[in-house]
Design a protein around this nucleic acid. Structure first.
Lengths: 228, 228
DNA sequence: TTCATAGTTCGATCATAACCGAACCATAAT
DNA sequence: ATTATGGTTCGGTTATGATCGAACTATGAA
């Protein structure tokens, strides 16, 4: 047999604890420096440098030099999608971390998944968009509807620009904590940006947590007609 | 950070060459014995036994005893999906295998990709379905059209049942040999079953090769209006 | 210039785990 | 019963690669 692309290399890269921690940190969508990633992974800078070189070589992360800092980020959203998929399978098989972090409940409530919203609120947003008819599912694919176009444009989204992107507008992403779908793609990313712009929520600096204010969450729920 | 499910274990399991080969072999959907998997992986039976125990423990494969044989298969289609995803990223990043096998030409012509047709014929089938207007591409997604529905139903496909499946109807799958798209999803699987039922081709027992008869291939090309 | 910070490269150490030989258990055929 | 086949367990070997200390380069600040 032995045909097909060689998955060993990619899986091996992800399968090291230090590198896996770095990749999870990069799932925040933020570009991080080598030093920051070293802290995340709990290894020295030398070790980190070696790991990052391997991941750049393997096509998982991209680097960008800025002054005397070197910023690293996930190469593209296919890599992000793969990682979330891995998390989903891992969660399903019960491979949770030995010690759950203090932020675990917050993460399950609302977190960043690369560049869009995930967690309880993310899945609820998705359901609401389907229920109000702004999006519709065709098989496992999701598309925007006529009323959806009006809705988003009335709320200041520039769909034209989103449509012209190389990336797809709507994409389903499996949520590891909820085991349900949330919305990825340029529209998903755009909604998260909208949330920040409206100051409904802001990001936690050292985690994937998206922290809504009380009023922000209420406004968010109201605009997108999300039910409890 | 260090929150969320632990992806290390799963990735580590996949990231070993012997285990990756076994998992790829199991992507054929068939249940295989430990001995068969040992041959696939090119390691002794003892080593294989150890690998399989780890993968069962890790939730990637399931075993079933039958007489003095023990059959192994992928645990569920989430695992298959994850592997597909990994292959797609690997192919995209150019991680192909070093040595090509003896059946390589046949594999490149027509082979099974989990449960659907891949290779030269697979990609040509896909192009033909687009060209005849039975499927249409919307960004990175593919959908069936009105004429497509008629076409498949006239040819005995039960689209209703396919639509109701949890899996998606049409899905693009990147072909490693052709570097082009072929059709996956329930429709893709259904077409492959159709090919077997019409006896246009049959599977090679020890590989993913799909071997068309001369007349079978001609009939296949004619029905789907595939051009050379 | 001098110093400090960010990151890389090199070499040595060390732990993990893949591997196989050999012995073992389980099922089936003779 | 005896033999053959399929699979597991155990122990020892070996290779890979993660790790860090130390020395190095590069950029920026004083």
């Amino acid at each position: 047999m032995k045909e097909g692309p060689d998955i060993t290399r990619i899986a091996q890269l992800i399968g090291d604890p230090a590198r896996a921690n770095m990749l999870c940190a990069l799932m925040s969508g933020k570009a991080l420096t080598a030093t920051e990633l070293a802290n995340e992974a709990g290894v020295t800078l030398q070790t980190t440098s070696g790991h990052l070189a391997k991941m750049v070589d393997g096509g998982l992360v991209a680097s960008r030099k800025q002054g005397r800092h070197k910023y690293y980020q996930l190469l593209d959203d296919d890599v992000a999608h793969l990682l979330e998929n891995l998390m989903s399978v891992a969660a399903q098989k019960g491979h949770l971390r030995a010690q759950t972090g203090p932020k675990d409940p917050e993460l399950r409530h609302a977190r960043v998944c690369y560049d869009h919203l995930a967690g309880d609120l993310g899945t609820k947003l998705y359901s609401a968009l389907i229920k109000t008819g702004h999006l519709k599912e065709i098989g496992d694919q999701t598309e925007i509807t006529g009323t959806g176009v009006s809705f988003f444009e009335e709320n200041g989204f520039e769909l034209e620009a989103l449509h012209n992107s190389r990336r797809q507008l709507c994409r389903q992403c499996l949520d590891w904590s909820e085991r349900r779908t949330h919305l990825a793609g340029t529209l998903g990313a755009s909604i998260l940006r909208h949330i920040y712009e409206k100051k409904w929520a802001k990001r936690d600096d050292n985690s994937r947590v998206v922290r809504f204010s009380k009023r922000g969450e209420a406004a968010f729920m109201a605009v997108f007609e999300i039910e409890l």
